[in-house]
Nucleic acid binder design. Structure first.
Lengths: 184, 184
DNA sequence: GGTGGGGCTGATACACTGTAACATGGACCG
DNA sequence: CGGTCCATGTTACAGTGTATCAGCCCCACC
């Protein structure tokens, strides 16, 4: 799947952010769209005294436009256009910034990134639900899981600084449709 | 070619007070050593009617010899010797096999692998504890976390097929020693 | 005994992911 | 105007993982 197989034509020159893919339930996200994410990030950067540059904005917009994990090279490709070539390394730098600020998250199991519209801190126990069928991803907080994990870690004498919790499977929407390829 | 590994390797013990990697009590693992892991794997392969070849055995032994995540190229390097050159691709294939059989686990956040002496199924909710200070890794089962996660997923209508739960931080031994910044 | 197939390994090449190092340009400050 | 900091552009390269073809070994089968 690593590849440039499908690119839903999303954006021309201007970055019109139509969000026409709600293939997955996506309830937990609170229903914010790409534009909301970008706006919120811009506000927060002002608050924090950080530069929300065009590159960073565009990278965030590109990630937010898709509700599935995007690789850095995918992002670079989507942002590039006749007249503007965006190198992957630039995307990585923007991604570093956005990740630090909590605007995007890295999905280790996919070497990819997703945008985040929440305002949880870095320490929040996030769970990522990745659908094998539609490729969509959902992010949610799970206090019960978090506290159970905290207790487990404390029992092991381990002091956590960061966590990764990614679940792969089939989302409700795909299961309902029986998209798996068989099943019924 | 790639034999350019600048990464910390070796660092086997060799001093009485090794800040190496048998830091963790490692109780959860049942105290098995590398040999145990290999033996167990051999038995299970026989039971399952699978080939436990020399390559696979050696790869497993190499991984089991270190109690920290090892990259595929690291493994290849360690296994190579005058007279036997092991290509990374071979290691990957062996690793695929070993992972499928549950003898090793992949650590997504590190692009690396660790051996496993447990006999849990693939579905078990494993937690990996990676110490930033000593680089050691511990694996444990956490039923409470697992059940909380199951419930959360069920509530979201998500059907899981695999999970990744990796925690980075500082293990008890390192914290006790205050290894955080000093020492090198 | 010969033969063919399947699984394992060797080897080369390549694709994808990520980082280092250096140069440029703009904003701010003296 | 000159200097510094930050962000970006650019090139090169390291690290991770796969595709592909070829040789080998074991074993069933003839």
């Amino acid at each position: 799947m690593r590849g440039h197989a499908q690119r839903e034509q999303g954006q021309e020159d201007g970055h019109g952010q139509e969000h026409g893919h709600d293939h997955h339930g996506h309830d937990a996200c609170g229903g914010h769209g790409a534009g909301d994410v970008v706006e919120r990030a811009e506000r927060l950067c002002q608050t924090r005294g950080l530069q929300f540059t065009r590159l960073r904005r565009d990278v965030l917009a590109a990630v937010a436009a898709e509700h599935k994990p995007l690789g850095a090279y995918d992002i670079a490709e989507r942002m590039s256009a006749p007249g503007r070539r965006v190198a992957a390394v630039s995307v990585y730098r923007a991604l570093d910034f956005l990740t630090e600020q909590g605007f995007v998250h890295r999905i280790s199991s996919r070497n990819a990134f997703v945008s985040c519209g929440h305002d949880h801190g870095e320490g929040a126990g996030l769970v990522f639900l990745i659908c094998r069928t539609c490729g969509g991803i959902d992010e949610m907080t799970a206090p019960a899981v978090e506290s159970a994990l905290d207790q487990t870690l404390a029992g092991a004498g381990f002091t956590p600084t960061s966590r990764i919790l990614e679940v792969e499977g089939e989302c409700g929407a795909c299961r309902g449709r029986g998209d798996a390829g068989e099943n019924a």
